[in-house]
Write a protein that binds this DNA or RNA. Structure first.
Length: 257
DNA sequence: ATGTCACCTGGTAGGTGA
């Protein structure tokens, strides 16, 4: 079973690239972030024509998430139960016995801002809910744009980024709190190339200079850890003519289907 | 280099968010 996450930065713009990518990478599950579409505008027909079932949770202008799967996803949940939030950031469903949580975690803007405090509250709510969700569904995958670079090795220039948004101790603490629930960063279960990033700013020729951060992650629960046989970042779509600023991350799980 | 991209409002640009 292959699962992937991709922040597409507007599905209206990136839909052709998503469909092309799925032809070349026929994963079983793909979660998308920053669809930036109200639900009425979601391109359901195009995605179904490509051979995928799809669930989505959107809003006007910002955020928005989707869950694409070869086989039907059941028990769909949108956002974090019990956490009142006008922003569309989470979609969850069960696919072939795996509980898949796709998330677009808040960016947080800068430490000390209201948006940063919202990010902290949001991560606390996510952790509290996931603790219960993992108990109910031991085979669980949490993946998406976490907007956190967990360690210095996930940052092209750790000294320049120290204390900056995506790299603060508080954000890294929130990431570790999730790991503390019994989740594992699939990417770090394997030896990886140095300077592996999943996001490069559109500015400053950052991609050409490989100045990026690893902020898109696939976390697997204890029950799935030994099933993970690979996890890679696919930089190819970042080389497209009109790319998202994020690259897809893909994990392979050796489980019965 | 405050350097790009996407979206909005409300227009033939400016603001917001990332």
């Amino acid at each position: 079973m292959k699962l992937a996450t991709w922040n597409v930065n507007s599905l209206a713009v990136r839909l052709p690239q998503v469909l092309d990518w799925l032809v070349a990478n026929p994963v079983d599950v793909l979660v998308l972030q920053e669809t930036k579409l109200i639900d009425d505008k979601f391109p359901r027909a195009e995605i179904e024509a490509a051979g995928y079932r799809v669930q989505w949770h959107g809003q006007k202008t910002y955020n928005g998430v989707a869950l694409l799967s070869r086989s039907e996803a059941t028990d769909i949940v949108k956002n974090i139960p019990g956490h009142d939030d006008p922003q569309a950031r989470v979609i969850t469903g069960t696919v072939e016995g795996v509980r898949v949580v796709g998330g677009y975690m808040p960016n947080g803007q800068a430490p000390g801002t209201d948006k940063f405090e919202y990010k902290m509250q949001w991560f606390r709510a996510l952790r509290d809910w996931l603790r219960e969700e993992i108990a109910l569904h031991p085979r669980l995958v949490l993946m998406g744009d976490f907007n956190v670079a967990p360690e210095d090795r996930d940052v092209h220039d750790p000294e320049a980024w120290r204390g900056q948004i995506l790299c603060t101790d508080e954000e890294r603490g929130q990431f570790r709190n999730l790991i503390g629930l019994g989740l594992h960063d699939a990417f770090r279960l394997f030896e990886q190339p140095q300077k592996s990033w999943s996001w490069w700013d559109y500015r400053n020729l950052a991609f050409r200079r490989n100045q990026g951060l690893r902020i898109d992650h696939i976390l697997v629960s204890n029950a799935l850890r030994d099933a993970v046989s690979a996890c890679t970042i696919d930089k190819l779509p970042r080389k497209n003519e009109r790319p998202s600023d994020h690259a897809p991350v893909v994990a392979t799980l050796e489980i019965d289907r």
